[in-house]
Design a binder for these strands. Structure first.
Lengths: 343, 343
DNA sequence: ATGAAAGCGCTAACAC
DNA sequence: GTGTTAGCGCTTTCAT
C-alpha cells in the first residue's frame, strides 16, 4: 500500500495545492483564508480564486493543532426529544452565531456514565468551553471539568455547587412556589405524577420543594404515580386515570412536565370533569408547543432560551457581569396559572 | 506573554507527561491508551495508573492529524424542534454506538446558505462521513459533497438525484397515497393546510403528489392555507378555523404535519364537528407524541428511526447491501387511517 | 515488547 | 506585504 502521490485525485486538498495553483506562498494563502494580516488585494483575489476553483476546504485539525485554538463549544444535554433542550440549544446557537464559536452537541440520555464518556470524548477535542446540563456528575466527570482549564457552565439548575459557572433556576423554589399557589387556591388533596427518571435531579428537586411547602401548610401528597417510556401525552392520560380511579377525592394533579400534564388535562376534559373547579392541574416547563390545547395548562416557564443565551455569553466572554468564571446566575421563572388553577 | 513552561499547572496534559510519570516511552503509552499492539500487563497497568492519576485526556486533534483518521460523522439537519429529526438522530446514535464513530450535529434552520456554511465548517474537521437531510443543496454544497472523498448519505427523501447514497421515502408517493385513501373514503372537498416553508422540499413534494392524485380523480384542492411561526398546535387550530369559516363545504383537511393536524383535530372536536363523518383529517409523520389525543389522527409514518439507522449503517460500512456508496434505499411508510378518515 | 525518528497540515514568530 | 522556519501532540514506520 504505497502512499498516494501528490497528484492523487482522491487526496484531499491542502494549502500547498492552493499555494501552487495561485503562485503564492502557503503562509500568504493561509493569511488570506483567515483574513489575518495585510495582504494586497491582487494577491487576495488570486488566492481566493484558486481556492474556489479547486474546491479547497481548510483542515481545521491541522489549524487547531498549530494555533492551539479550537472554535468548538461542547454542549452536553440529557435528551433532544423533549422540547426543553432544543430550545436551550436555540439560545446557545443564536448567541454563538457571531462569535466564531460553534456548538457541538452530545446527548447523555440521563445516564451519568454516558455523560462521563461523552464529556471525555468532547474534551479530547479541546473545545473552548463546556456547557453541561445539571450540577450532578460522576466524580470522574467533576474532575475532568475542574481540570479542563476552560470555562465550564452548568445549566438549568442552581441548587448545588457548580464546578465553575452556573446559569439556571432553582427547581426547589419552583416546586415550592407552585405548591403555595395551589394551596392558596384552596386545593387540599394533591397528587404528584411524574416520569420515572432516577437521574432527573431537577424533577426531583421540584418535587422536594413542592412537598416541603405542602408540609409547611400541614399537608402531604395523597398520591404519587410514576411511569416511564412511551408517548408522554398518553402516559399522562393513563396515569391520571389510574390516580383518579384509585383516589377519587384527589382535587389537584401536579405533573413533572407539561406533556404528561396535557395528557391529564385532555383526559379530565373528556371525562367531563370540571377543570379547575373540581380538579386543578399544573405542569412544568411552559412549552409553547401546547398553546393550542382547549385549556391552557398551569405551568412555570423554565427560562430555557434565556439559559442558553446566558450560558453562551459566558463562554464567549461577553456576559454583562464581565467576571471570569465562577458566577452563579439565577433566573426566575414566572408562574402561569393558565385555566387549570382556580382563582 | 511568554509561553508557559512545562510545569505550568494550567497547561493541558500531554502523552509526554504520562510517559514521564510512568517511566514508559510516549510510544508505549500511546499503544496502551489505544489498545494497539502488544504491551506487557505490568507496563499497561503502570501507564493506566499514571494516566488516571494525572487525569490525562488524549488530544484527538493531534491524534487525528497524525493518523489521518477522524471518528466523527457530520449530521446536518434543518431543525431540532419538530420531533422528526430528534428521532432520526436516535436511529443514528444507536447504530453508531458500537462502531467508535460519533455523530456531530449541525442545524440549518431550513436555510440553504446556512446549510452550506455548516457543511463547510464540518468538512473542515475531516469527518468520516456525512449524513445530510434532503437532496436539494446549493451548487457549492453539492460540489463540496462530491469532492469530500468520504461517504455521503442524503436522508429523508429519494425523489431526486443523490450525490452518493440516499435513504428515505418518496414524499411524492406518500402524498399520492394519502390522496387516494381520502378519495376512496368519499371525501370530495379537500383543503390543504401547511406551514409556510419555501425550503421544505419534502412538504412541497407531498403536496405535489397529493394534487397529482386529486387531478387524476378529476378533483382539485378547494382551499390552501399557509402559516409560519408560533405553536404548531395553535396554528393548526387557527388555520382550521379560517378554512372552515371561509369554506364551510370543505369535508377534508390535509395537513403538512401532525402537530398542526392535531391542532385542527382539537378545534373540530371542540366545535362539535363530526369527525370523521362530516370532516376528515390527516397529517404526516406519525409522531408518537400525539398518541394521547382523544382521537387518533390519520397520518403516515415517515420511517424516521429506520432512516437514521440505515444511514448510519452505510457510513459505518456495515449496511447489508455491502456495496460501497451510490445506493438509493427507499423505505415505505404505512398509512395509518386512525380515527379521522371514515371507512 | 519497546523505542526513535519522521512527519500529519497548518500557524506563530520572526525575517525581509 | 510576503516568505521562512520551527513546531503543535500525536501516530506511523522501522529498528531493536
Amino acid at each position: 500500500m504505497s502512499k498516494p502521490p501528490i497528484s492523487d485525485p482522491r487526496r484531499t486538498l491542502t494549502l500547498r495545492d492552493v499555494s501552487e495553483a495561485s503562485g503564492v506562498s502557503e503562509m500568504t494563502v493561509s493569511r488570506v483564508l483567515r483574513n489575518r494580516g495585510d495582504v494586497s488585494d491582487t494577491t487576495r483575489e488570486r488566492v481566493l480564486e484558486a481556492a474556489r476553483r479547486l474546491g479547497y476546504v481548510p483542515n481545521k485539525i491541522a489549524g487547531a493543532l498549530a494555533s492551539q485554538r479550537v472554535n468548538l463549544v461542547a454542549v452536553i444535554i440529557p435528551s433532544l426529544s423533549n422540547m426543553v433542550f432544543p430550545e436551550v440549544m436555540t439560545g446557545i446557537s443564536d448567541t454563538l452565531e457571531d462569535t466564531g464559536l460553534q456548538p457541538v452537541v452530545g446527548v447523555t440520555n440521563y445516564s451519568p456514565d454516558r455523560e462521563e464518556s461523552v464529556l471525555y470524548e468532547m474534551l479530547s477535542w479541546r473545545p473552548s468551553g463546556v456547557i453541561i446540563a445539571g450540577l450532578e456528575h460522576t466524580d470522574a466527570s467533576q474532575a475532568m471539568l475542574a481540570q479542563a482549564g476552560i470555562p465550564i457552565v452548568e445549566i438549568m439548575d442552581i441548587d448545588g455547587s457548580p464546578v465553575d459557572s452556573a446559569v439556571g433556576i432553582s427547581h426547589r423554589r419552583a416546586g415550592r412556589q407552585m405548591a403555595e399557589a395551589i394551596i392558596a387556591a384552596g386545593y387540599r388533596n394533591i397528587a404528584f405524577l411524574g416520569t420515572m427518571m432516577p437521574h432527573d435531579h431537577r424533577a426531583r428537586k421540584r418535587l422536594e420543594g413542592f412537598e416541603e411547602a405542602l408540609a409547611k401548610a400541614g399537608l402531604s401528597l395523597v398520591e404519587r404515580e410514576f411511569y416511564s417510556g412511551g408517548s408522554a401525552l398518553l402516559k399522562g392520560r393513563e396515569m391520571t386515570e389510574a390516580v383518579l380511579t384509585r383516589n377519587p377525592q384527589v382535587d389537584f394533579l401536579y405533573y413533572s412536565n407539561d406533556m404528561i400534564g396535557a395528557g391529564g388535562l385532555l383526559y379530565c376534559l373528556s371525562k367531563g370533569i370540571d377543570v379547575p373547579g373540581q380538579i386543578g392541574l399544573a405542569g412544568f416547563n411552559g412549552v409553547e408547543l401546547l398553546d393550542g390545547l382547549p385549556r391552557k395548562l398551569a405551568t412555570m416557564d423554565a427560562c430555557r432560551l434565556e439559559i442558553g443565551r446566558v450560558a453562551a455569553e459566558i463562554i464567549a466572554g461577553k456576559h454583562a457581569s464581565g467576571t471570569i468564571g465562577g458566577e452563579v446566575i439565577e433566573l426566575f421563572p414566572t408562574l402561569q396559572k393558565g385555566d387549570t388553577i382556580r382563582g
